[in-house]
Amino acid sequence: MSDATANGTAPATPRKDKVETPFRRFVSEFCESKVAIGGLIVFTAIALIAIFAPWITPQNPYDLAQLDIMDGRQEPGTTGGAGFTFWLGTDDQGRDMMSGIMYGLRISLTVGAGSALIACLVGASLGLLAAYAGGRTDSAIMRLVDLQLSFPSILVALMILAFLGKGIMNVVIALVIVEWAYYARTVRGTALVERRREYIEAAQCLALPTHRILFRHLLPNCLPPLIVVATMQVARAIALEATLSFLGLGVPITEPSLGLLIANGYEYMLSGKYWISFYPGIALLVTIVSINLVGDQLRDVLNPRLKK
């Protein structure tokens, strides 16, 4: 038998790997999709434009002193009284659409990312709690999640804005209420699996405080699916905010997001002045699609079930 075991060592296939840290592996797997890299580059550019909008736009579209009503509804490419070219045309107030879009991006991204972040915090905490506490807490939280997910997002948002009225804060609240359930469900699902692992038992044996176990031990291990959900939800939040603003239930006129810009141009579109609606729409589209492309690839890379 002894020589059998000696023979039993299967021939080890020689492989020359570098030391592979999880992060490096993640980056290299992410880079396998060129489309996803493209999405990431585009999104980074959009985010930079949004952040630096006040410094790079030719005019501040909300400073009435800089607007000239004579420049109203100019076609893309015309040069206005202030001496610069309206590459994307102007709206009825003589506002440069390009500047308007860049400022609109700021508001759309802030609302979208902000609400996604808050929803993530709320949802992840509740999800963790549900998974860790189990029993009645768990079933109470999950009933609420199920109930909410059985209604479409637009309806829940509509309901909340009907209760609260419009305004940026109210939109954020509505988006948080719409989204938290997705995070809670994701985190609970993962945490339930992780909870049974030995390292949690070990932490419990060490009598670590509950919040430490939850946030230092359990949460980091729930991060991959959470990141995927968060990416997708940012895109969804931006789209939903735009929709609500388009319907006139979202942000106020004084702080127009992309959705409101599109709504403002709606009436002019029928008379052939397409650009007032069209370009903000393109900006919205590119933003959402680029985030989704990144999210799609993240899901493929981070989803352990798809790993070979």
């Binding site: 735009a242 388009f246 959705g259 599109i262 729409g281 589209l285 959402i288």
Partner: peptide, 8 residues
Amino acid sequence: GFSLPTFW
């Protein structure tokens, strides 16, 4: 179809 906002 999934990512485009319906209204747009």
